[in-house]
């Protein structure tokens, strides 16, 4: 379980202070497909960077099974990172390495033996439907295929949580549906918790059983997707849903 407690992140720059997140609290249960939705600039990406331990919270805590992520150092930090797979918006694949080497990369970092590594990679590529592309290089793949490689790579260390940043924003509608289908399947087959950061309401509606709406650095509302979407309490949710009563947004 992931508990986010009063998470605040302030960036200091020459232009002054920017509060990217203010007192955000909610929890993600094991096995959820959890959507975090908001407009661009709402703070979603900062939230993902805090969850993936790329940024330290200014105040507040993120607990993974009761352990404060910010308190981890050294080996424990590396171990915690292996329990969370991250799929980045830009995929961030190693361009000089083949699909096989990319998926094997986290295993190599973890010191997994070669034979075991190879078997796991085959299994993962099978899982994401890219077994025939094992020896291709990222430059030879389409956006949807790269996304699948990124997903397979993130799953390599058997993480309990898969964090996905805008997994479909660069994909066409058909590929989007396939990638979402894959995420749902992974959640059901592997029991992995999936957190999807998105600005697209359709993505949340399609696969997320729960949702948190982030607006202007704050938590607007959250809960079961069907309930939130049936009775949106905040004006930002109404706006995202495109229903009457949503406030005008610049």
């Amino acid at each position: 379980m992931i508990q986010i407690e009063n998470l605040t992140k302030i960036f200091h720059s020459a232009a002054g202070e920017v509060t990217a997140l203010r007192e955000v609290s909610f929890s993600i249960e094991d096995g959820d497909v959890f959507g975090i939705i908001g407009m661009s600039g709402a703070g979603k990406s900062t939230l993902l960077r805090c969850l993936s331990m790329l940024e330290q919270p200014t105040s507040g805590r993120i607990l993974l099974d009761g352990v404060d992520l910010a308190s981890l150092r050294g080996k424990q930090l590396l171990a915690a990172r292996r329990r969370m797979g991250v799929v980045f918006q830009g995929y961030h694949l190693l361009m000089q390495k083949s699909v096989r080497e990319n998926v094997a990369f986290p295993l190599r970092l973890a010191g997994v033996r070669r034979a075991e590594r190879e078997a796991r990679v085959d299994e993962l590529l099978e899982l994401v439907g890219l077994a025939d592309k094992a020896n291709a290089y990222p430059a030879q793949l389409s956006g949807g295929q790269r996304q699948r490689v990124a997903i397979a790579r993130a799953l390599a260390t058997n993480p309990q949580v898969l964090l996905c940043d805008e997994p479909t924003s660069a994909l066409d509608p058909l590929t989007t549906r396939q990638v979402l289908e894959l995420l749902r399947e992974l959640n059901q087959r592997l029991g992995v918790t999936i957190v999807v950061i998105t600005h697209e309401i359709a993505v949340v509606r399609e696969i997320c059983n729960k949702v948190a709406v982030i607006d202007a650095a704050q938590f607007a509302e959250g809960g079961r997707t069907d309930e939130i979407f049936a009775k949106p309490a905040s004006s930002i949710t109404r706006l995202l849903l495109g229903v009457e009563g949503g406030r005008k947004h610049a």
Binding site: R81, F88, L94, Q96, L109
Partner: peptide, 30 residues
């Protein structure tokens, strides 16, 4: 080298030495 790839390696639990040897030098070899 795309800084995103370095962050991705960090998220995968790479140590700094692994990032230098396998990501930075490997990706910039050409």
């Amino acid at each position: 080298v795309d800084t995103g790839v370095i962050e991705a390696a960090k998220c995968m639990g790479a140590t700094r030495l692994q990032i230098i040897l396998q990501v930075l030098l490997g990706e910039s070899l050409p």
